[in-house]
Design a binder for these strands. Structure first.
Length: 259
DNA sequence: ATTGTGGCCTGCCCGC
DNA sequence: TGCGGGCAGGCCACAA
């Protein structure tokens, strides 16, 4: 489940390759190339370029090198490795092994070293010039006004809005469940129905939750996480947790204090 | 336009 | 011991 916290860790690791020049582009899995780009197109666009920056927007990692920006997505099981080191050794749903067959995309650098993506389930991808205009504001640096705009007018469930990367970029299923649990908001609330106090509170909870869980080590470190299973009870008030499908995703929440 | 649904991909875990 | 089914969720195509 690479959500925004994991992708930020990947971005930090990718800073290791800033300043290096791309010698070869490895595209062993054509499925992994998105946006219509071919292996040849990818190689032509990137070979010989020097990486100048590692950026992130939502769950997308962006590598700049003077030409087309390389966009990397990790789906739910993608890991980033640089020179054999992983930013995150273990992903919650990612399997514990490592397998050369899971290497989906890589860059080799002049003078040695390599960056690659390991993704058993192939839900991630690599593309050139990802259209960031399709994404909402980044959830980590979002302002309260931006959050209110992201929620405004929605008649669908709050949780579905928060997961909609076109409205708000970066939160995934685990983080949204955690944030709503902490904020005391039902995932089923109409997203446009929050009053200004609730929106302000939600904004603060998002910021604080991301900062805290980043320090703890990722999106599986929430207070709710270990309880989101059959028979789980709310760690705040002991109420049995409810499991619903909201926004198409498995959702665990406490009907006792989330309203 | 907005919202909802199903499918993609594959490893893992459970029950038989 | 092997096997089949269900499940995980980020993302996209498509339907209503």
């Amino acid at each position: 489940m690479p959500e925004i916290l994991e992708v930020e860790a990947y971005r930090h690791l990718a800073e290791q390759v800033v300043g290096r020049t791309i010698a070869t582009v490895e595209t062993p899995d054509h499925w992994f190339l998105k946006g219509g780009v071919t292996s040849t197109g990818m190689a032509d666009a990137l070979t010989g370029r020097r990486i100048t920056a590692a950026r992130r927007h939502g769950k997308v990692l962006l590598l700049d090198s003077g030409g087309p920006t390389l966009g990397l997505r990790f789906g739910m099981t993608g890991r980033l490795l640089v020179d054999g080191r992983a930013a995150i050794e273990y992903l919650e749903w990612g399997g514990r092994r490592s397998d050369p067959a899971w290497e989906r995309f890589g860059l080799r650098f002049r003078g040695g070293g390599r960056l690659w993506i390991d993704d058993p389930r192939r839900l991630g991808g690599a593309e050139l010039e990802p259209d960031l205009g399709l994404l909402g504001p980044d959830a980590w640096t979002l302002g309260v006004v931006q959050l209110r705009m992201a929620l405004a007018g929605g008649r669908g469930p709050l949780k579905a809005r928060l997961l909609d990367q076109g409205r708000l970029a970066g939160l995934g299923n685990l983080l949204v469940d955690e944030v709503l649990w902490r904020a005391g908001l039902s995932p089923l609330r109409a997203s446009g129905g929050l009053d200004s106090d609730e929106a302000r509170h939600l904004h603060r909870v998002i910021r604080r939750t991301l900062d805290q869980m980043d320090r703890r080590g990722g999106s599986h470190t929430g207070d709710l996480f270990e309880h989101r299973r059959p028979g789980g009870a709310c760690p705040r008030d002991g109420e049995p947790l409810r499991r619903d499908t909201v926004g198409g995703r498995t959702s665990w929440w406490c009907p006792g204090h989330q309203r």
